[in-house]
């Protein structure tokens, strides 16, 4: 700790002076390790196990007001259900203006096709995260307003329209949604630099 501190001070002073007077060129290469420490110092200074007592402890009721996400193992999926017909009806009223009659995307509204490329619904790894995104983020002009039934219906509609599911009368609820295995699930290459393997990231 002390050693670091001295180095830090030295770095700051040489650099401040050199920077002002000669454009700080020679000093630089030598100063690199010290510079790195200058960034790491403050965090180390904070006592690692100190409890400060700031903030307010909360229970399940408050957490429920804030938390609406769905985990890939299905945790968080709400009760309720919806079928393709309900989904189609909502889609036409609330979504088609941006996503197009056939999910082709309306460029001027900023939406792209959901049939291929980066936004391809077939390529999604988990139906859970599709439900999560639709309920939390869509319709983009009024997010957070879809009911659970409507969201189940919309997910059923999107999966049937993109050919992931075959049954044109599909009805989804928490259990049936959890049972869906997305076709592209095993096509993800996990960057080794993440520190994880594909298996470690599996939801089920």
């Amino acid at each position: 700790m002390t050693v670091h501190k001295t180095k830090l001070v030295k770095f700051v002073s040489t650099c401040a002076l050199a920077g002002l007077l000669i454009g700080c060129s020679e000093a630089d290469t030598g100063a690199e390790p010290e510079a790195a420490m200058a960034q790491e110092m403050p965090a180390e200074a904070a006592a690692p196990d100190m409890k400060y007592g700031f903030g307010t402890s909360v229970g399940a009721d408050i957490i429920a007001q804030y938390d609406g996400d769905i985990h890939i193992d299905g945790t968080g999926l709400p009760s309720g259900s919806g079928n393709v017909a309900l989904g189609r009806e909502i889609y036409e009223i609330q979504c088609a203006i941006c996503h197009g009659e056939n999910l082709e995307g309306v460029r001027e509204m900023g939406a792209q096709t959901m049939h291929e490329g980066r936004r391809d619904i077939k390529k999604l790894p988990y139906a859970e995260s599709l439900f999560d995104f639709v309920r939390r983020s869509m319709p983009l002009t009024d997010p957070g307003t879809l009911s659970n039934d409507e969201t189940y219906g919309l997910v059923a509609f999107l999966l049937v329209e993109t050919g992931v599911m075959e049954d044109p009368e599909l009805t989804l609820d928490a259990d049936s949604l959890k049972a869906i295995n997305m076709p592209n699930r095993d096509k993800f290459i996990i960057d080794p630099a993440s520190g994880f393997t594909a298996e470690e990231l599996e939801g089920k």
């Binding site: 985990h71 980066r118 936004r119 790894p125 859970e128 995260s129 999560d132 995104f133 599996e202």
Partner: peptide, 13 residues
Amino acid sequence: KPWWTHHENTEYA
């Protein structure tokens, strides 16, 4: 586990 959120499995993949 990671959540595999929309932005990590489509747009930023």
